[in-house]
Design a protein around this nucleic acid. Sequence first.
DNA 1: CTGAAAGCGCTTACAG
DNA 2: CTGAAAGCGCTTACAG
Lengths: 339, 339
Amino acid sequence: MVKRVSLKDIAREVGVSSALVSYVLNDKKTGRINKVVAQKIKDTAKLLNYHTNQIARSLKTNKTNTIGLIVADISNPFSATMARIIEDEAAKKNYTVIFGSSDENPFQSEKLIETFMNRYVDGLIIAPRENTEYLLHDLVKQEIPFVLFDRYFPSINTSYVAMDNFKASFDAVKYLIKCGYKKIGIVNYQSTLQHLNDRTNGYLKALETLHILPANNLVKEVAIDNIPVHVENAINELMAMSEPPDAILFASGEIALHGVKHIKQQNIKVPSELALISFDEMAAWDLFYAPLTYIKQPLQKMGQLATKILIESIEDNSRIQRYHLPGSLVTRQSTKLPL
Amino acid sequence: MVKRVSLKDIAREVGVSSALVSYVLNDKKTGRINKVVAQKIKDTAKLLNYHTNQIARSLKTNKTNTIGLIVADISNPFSATMARIIEDEAAKKNYTVIFGSSDENPFQSEKLIETFMNRYVDGLIIAPRENTEYLLHDLVKQEIPFVLFDRYFPSINTSYVAMDNFKASFDAVKYLIKCGYKKIGIVNYQSTLQHLNDRTNGYLKALETLHILPANNLVKEVAIDNIPVHVENAINELMAMSEPPDAILFASGEIALHGVKHIKQQNIKVPSELALISFDEMAAWDLFYAPLTYIKQPLQKMGQLATKILIESIEDNSRIQRYHLPGSLVTRQSTKLPL
DNA sequence: CTGAAAGCGCTTACAG
DNA sequence: CTGAAAGCGCTTACAG
């Protein structure tokens, strides 16, 4: 690699101290510096194509202007879209993003946090995996700024930004009932994560509120170790019941993807035999013969807000903020029209 | 933020110099150091929960163990999947990845490269946008290690990893002909990027080789400013011809997504009236009533190879390597069976 | 208005 | 076998 230009090089060229060069290029002490000298420094910096060495600056200031982003898997569309929104928002405020995928490997989250801390990121944005509360408690104790998104732990004293999953689910089921469906099932992950439980709870509450008896066996939970197979089984079980459901709510895009594929293969007619609603927006929904009605998460707002809150808490150590943003139901042909 | 433990803290605790602590923790000069002292240093480091300050190390060694990844848009599935593969491969070799989306904003690529250079990334992996050769020439001149992926510029003296787009396209068209299709169209981007031209060229070559006259108006190129509309128009134009095509090759997943949506709306029957093949694997292909035949890119290999080549050239300044990896055609119901 | 100096936390050539 | 010292390229409190 070619040698880079340093402050000292500019100082030597102009005939001043490197301290002065630093002041000028950082716009410190403006007004108290000789205009002519200042201009000459700026010109020389440009001429020599000077760029601050962020590493050296960081070492001195203890600030890297870097955010660590930890998602479940950067290759899934939800994470990737969030990454993009966070990237843009961070760039506006002069932050760069490093990312990592925590997956389902239990040590991966820990390892990522450690890596990011060694690199002295200024803060973290995390979609935490199950059973990682202890890691987050650690971050709180070390006073490292971080905000959770999508998923959250009520027990941890930190900021987060999530959708109001309870209400989104509640509204979706209310809509199904309004369309005349009476036996509504749900397929969710088997998980202790609060935002997923909120989805099932919203579903149950809607049935209760509208005086529909929730049949317990219409709630299916699939283990994450082999989603395609577990989803197929769940649907087979539901449809083999003496009174099979006339509508299903899928608690995630991933579940729905496998669910719809299977329903198509089984030649179950949507929406006449079975109505479908899924969480999450996906390009795939449009190619199904009955484009899916889905719950759209406010990704843009979630990402921007999470980034904004994080940077605020990095820069002025501000108070904890928690958001449950409203989702919206996009109604299409996988559900009949309301009666 | 809580004060972190430094080498000096350990040195003080053990009663040795921080130089010695550095040697021990980095496994330098092993054998020439008193075993007992070495063990005590290691124990103390663990006890105090010491972690290297990568910033300080980087400043000294001029090495950040960071790779900058520049993609068109991290939120698109192709980029996101590559990001994940690169992340994993880089982590194995102890590198962290920072990413940025270059988009279609002409200055964005330049800005990203500058940001990454200020942060002294050790090297870059880039899917370059159109007309950015000048930036890459700059990198070559500055002797900054980088490798291109997916897209490449033959004129630039650098390593790259791409699919063999020419052959993939050639094979896809050959397959269509084997199935009995005679009037084959292609919808590609309007672009000067070599890898996209390769796709059209492979298509033309296959027709030529198999003595099918390529009707010039069966080649459609869509501007990137409004893909959905341009793709619709392209398909309308093709289907309005006196002799409309009986098969279409889509040169990207994005084009196909809008294309298939439109074809579905127009009630054109696939594959009986019109066969379809698309580049790229997408979840959406499975939900269409005639699951798409597609050209699968060897993403895993591409990402791993690009990362491996980059790290090699960072660490031993190795020679330029160029790969055109074979794609594979996954045949399904959007094309009839071969005759 | 400007500069000398210290120091961020490491690594490493050199001396003993 | 071990340590003193220099230095990476910045920033900033202090002195004049």
